[in-house]
């Protein structure tokens, strides 16, 4: 059986799962997607950096309507991981305002997404309450 594939290329599944970012070598701005040049300073060289796996919830919304195949309700959020803003779902928590609050401590976790026709599993990520 083949190794699981990550949902996105900035999720690293080998060893301790973590996220990586493209960091601008000139100004330090970080991006998760492929970039042609830095939107902040125009430099066009990046290096790959590891993003901390723990962070604080900066914003969230509890989503009740979503595309087909997405279980609802779920918590969509933005997590501040040591100064890097990470868009992610908040998982392993009740999707209600009593259990989710801005400022809560979170840590990265992986989420299985199923297998394809070749039997390969895809793995996504989310952030769960830490401690």
């Amino acid at each position: 059986m083949s190794d699981p594939v990550p949902l996105v290329d900035y999720l690293v599944l080998t060893g301790q799962p973590h996220l990586t970012a493209h960091e601008c070598t000139a100004c330090g701005a970080r991006y998760f997607d492929r970039r042609n040049a830095c939107a902040a300073c125009e430099a066009d060289t990046f290096h790959t950096v590891d993003v901390p796996t723990e962070g604080e919830l900066r914003a969230f919304t509890i989503v009740s309507y979503a595309a087909p195949g997405i279980p609802v309700p779920f918590v969509a959020g933005v997590v501040d991981c040591g100064g890097t803003s990470v868009r992610a779902n908040v998982v392993n928590v009740s999707a209600d305002p009593e259990h989710v609050r801005v400022g809560m401590k979170l840590r990265l976790t992986t989420v299985p997404l199923g297998t394809d026709a070749a039997g390969t599993e895809a793995v996504g990520f989310g952030f769960e309450p830490a401690g």
Binding site: V5, P6, L7, V8, D9, Y10, F32, D33, R34, R35, T61, V63, Y65, A66, A67, G69, I70, F74, A76, G77, V78, R87, A88, N89, V111, L113, D116, A117, A118, T120, A122, G124, F125
Partner: peptide, 26 residues
């Protein structure tokens, strides 16, 4: 049918709803 990375995130599946939300209200 099979996972294959696409786009600027190298995503193998739609990320809306799996990595936060892209819907305007959200």
């Amino acid at each position: 049918d099979t996972w294959s990375p696409q786009g600027r995130f190298g995503a193998v599946a739609p990320i809306d709803g799996r990595i936060g939300t892209e819907t305007m209200p959200g």
